[in-house]
Design a protein around this nucleic acid. Sequence first.
DNA 1: CAATGTGTATACCGATCGGTATACCTCAGG
DNA 2: CCTGAGGTATACCGATCGGTATACACATTG
Lengths: 189, 189
Amino acid sequence: MLTPAGERVLTAASELFYREGLNAVGVAAVAEAAGVTKKTLYACFGSKTELTVAYLRRRHDVWWAYLEERLAEADRPRALVVFDAYIDHPRLGSDRGCAFLNAAAELPAGHPGLDVIRRHKAAVRAKFAELLREDAPGADDPERLAEQLFLLVEGAVAHTGIDGDAHRVTLAREIAEILMRDPRTAGTR
Amino acid sequence: MLTPAGERVLTAASELFYREGLNAVGVAAVAEAAGVTKKTLYACFGSKTELTVAYLRRRHDVWWAYLEERLAEADRPRALVVFDAYIDHPRLGSDRGCAFLNAAAELPAGHPGLDVIRRHKAAVRAKFAELLREDAPGADDPERLAEQLFLLVEGAVAHTGIDGDAHRVTLAREIAEILMRDPRTAGTR
DNA sequence: CAATGTGTATACCGATCGGTATACCTCAGG
DNA sequence: CCTGAGGTATACCGATCGGTATACACATTG
C-alpha cells in the first residue's frame, strides 16, 4: 500500500513521465511537483527505476479498468470497443501517444519496466482474442484476427504522439471493421 | 559538406542514438566513439540539437535511397515493396524499432528534429499514394488506401522495438495485401 | 508517556550533462 | 614560406543527474 504522500508522488510522476519522457524528468522535479521531499520519494519507491515501474503498472491498471468498464456495457462484437477506449479515455492523455511505446523507446535493455510493457501489450492482444472467440465462436482463426487487430491499434496509437491527436485510431477502427467482416482475413487464401 | 571527422561523428552518433536513445547518449560518448574530440564535434555541428537533426536527416536519406532502389527493380503493385524495405534493410538496424518514432517519444516540443520526423512520415505516406495511383489508376480512393497502408506499416515498425524482431511487419504486409485486393477497402460502404 | 512511522527541510555526494577555453600540431595552397 | 583550416589533448564551466545524510516536527498507537 502507498502512503498518501506516495500516492501524490506517483500521480505527479505519471503526469511528468508521460508528458516529458522518462529520461527528461529528474526525481527532484517529480518530488517538487508532488509537494514532497526527495527523501519521502525514496522512502516510498527506493529508486527511480522502481518509480518508473510503478508508473507503468498504474497506467496499465487505470486504462484496463476503463476498458473493462466499457466492455461490460457494450454490445457485440466488442472487439471494436478496444479502439474506442483508446480514442476517448477521459483521464489518460493521448496527445503524446502510447505511454508504453514511448517508455519502451527510452528504457535500456534489462530495465524491469520492459516486462510491464510486454505484459501490457500481451494482455491487450489476449483480450482481442478472448473477445473474438466469445463473440464469434465460429470464426476461422480468431487468434490470427486478434493479431491483426492488435497490430492496427498499436500502429494507430504509435502515431498519435506525432500527430498530436487520435484521428488515426479512428482510421484503424474502420480497417478493423473491414477485417472482421471479411472471412479472408483469416489468411486462408 | 561534412569534413571526414564530421562524417565519423555522424556515423557514431547514428549508431549510438539509435541503439541507446537520444537522451541516454552524451556528446562525450559520441565524440569518443568517433575517435574525435568534443571540440571537433562542436566545430562540425554546433550543438547536440543540430547533431540530432543531422542524425534524423541522414537516417531518412539512407533509408529513402534504399527504398527507391528497391522500387526501381520491383514489379507491380509496388506498394508492398515499402513493407519489404522495412523488413530487410541491410544496414539500418531494426531490432530497436523505428528510429523516428523512438526519437519522437524523446524530443521535447519545439525541437527542430520533430519537423524532420513529420516530413519523413509524410514522405512515406505520399509515396504510398503515388505508388497506388500509378499502379492502379482505376482505384476507388487511392488516398484513403494509402492512409491505411501507412497506418499498417507504422504500427508494425512501432512494435518492432518491443518484439526485438520484425515479424509484425510481415503480418502488416499480409493485411496490406488483403486491403489492396478488396474494393471495399476504399471505405465506400 | 514513549515509541514508531511518516513526513519536512536542507545540505551534501560523486558523476555526468551540454558546452567552452587554451594551447599545440599538421598539412595543403597561395 | 607561411598562413589558415581542421585537427588533438586537456582542462574547465555551471547545472543537473540519481541517491544519501543529518536533524527536526507531528501524529497515531501500544
